[in-house]
Simulated scan of single mutants.
Amino acid sequence: MREAENIELYYSESATVKVKLTAKKMLEFANGNQEFPEGLYMEFFNEAGKMTSTLRANEAIYTKEQDVWRGRGDVEIKSIENNQQLNTEELFWKPDQERMYTDKFVTIKLPDQVLYGRGLTAKQDFSSYEITEPEGIFYLEDE
């Protein structure tokens, strides 16, 4: 097992930074799993290198075998491009699929309304999402 403090990690594809991760503390285990007991903050970037969204969680775990991240506690995603914010108590991220999901209660704040529901599937940059069981009043645009 290894332990690191005040870390900053970058994930890239084809020499392009896709994700920047910062955390106060990281524990890495022999099986490749990682734990962030004091939380983490992530920034997601598009192909042009522009930050598209951020993710913050009170604690997180990365399971190497399944290549899945799990954020817990107060999990928050902000979409910079769409001016939207997601809050939930647990969120999973599959980097290989560029997808996030949860079966927990979610709140999505839009510029002009707030959406509620249980369960969500979203692109990792939060540019599109689907609430599994939406609740409340919704405003729909006519096309």
Score class of each variant (00 low, 15 high):
residue 1 M to C: 04
residue 1 M to S: 07
residue 3 E to C: 09
residue 3 E to A: 12
residue 3 E to Y: 10
residue 4 A to F: 14
residue 4 A to V: 12
residue 7 I to D: 01
residue 11 Y to K: 13
residue 12 S to T: 10
residue 13 E to N: 03
residue 16 T to N: 08
residue 17 V to N: 10
residue 18 K to T: 10
residue 19 V to K: 12
residue 22 T to M: 11
residue 25 K to D: 00
residue 26 M to R: 09
residue 29 F to P: 00
residue 32 G to I: 03
residue 33 N to W: 01
residue 34 Q to E: 12
residue 35 E to N: 00
residue 37 P to G: 03
residue 38 E to V: 01
residue 39 G to I: 00
residue 40 L to A: 04
residue 43 E to Q: 10
residue 44 F to Q: 10
residue 44 F to W: 05
residue 47 E to I: 11
residue 48 A to R: 15
residue 49 G to I: 01
residue 50 K to N: 11
residue 56 R to P: 01
residue 56 R to Q: 11
residue 57 A to L: 02
residue 59 E to C: 00
residue 60 A to Q: 04
residue 61 I to D: 03
residue 62 Y to H: 08
residue 63 T to Y: 15
residue 63 T to H: 13
residue 65 E to S: 14
residue 67 D to H: 08
residue 69 W to D: 03
residue 73 G to K: 00
residue 73 G to Q: 02
residue 75 V to T: 01
residue 75 V to A: 02
residue 76 E to K: 15
residue 80 I to S: 07
residue 80 I to T: 08
residue 80 I to R: 09
residue 82 N to D: 13
residue 83 N to A: 15
residue 84 Q to A: 06
residue 91 L to A: 02
residue 92 F to N: 09
residue 93 W to Q: 04
residue 94 K to G: 03
residue 97 Q to D: 14
residue 98 E to C: 03
residue 99 R to W: 09
residue 101 Y to N: 09
residue 101 Y to M: 09
residue 102 T to K: 04
residue 102 T to A: 06
residue 104 K to T: 07
residue 104 K to A: 14
residue 107 T to H: 07
residue 110 L to S: 08
residue 110 L to N: 11
residue 110 L to E: 14
residue 113 Q to W: 01
residue 114 V to M: 05
residue 116 Y to C: 13
residue 116 Y to G: 10
residue 121 T to H: 09
residue 122 A to T: 08
residue 123 K to V: 13
residue 125 D to Q: 11
residue 128 S to C: 03
residue 132 T to D: 06
residue 134 P to S: 08
residue 138 F to L: 08
residue 142 D to L: 15
residue 143 E to M: 10
residue 143 E to H: 14
residue 143 E to V: 13
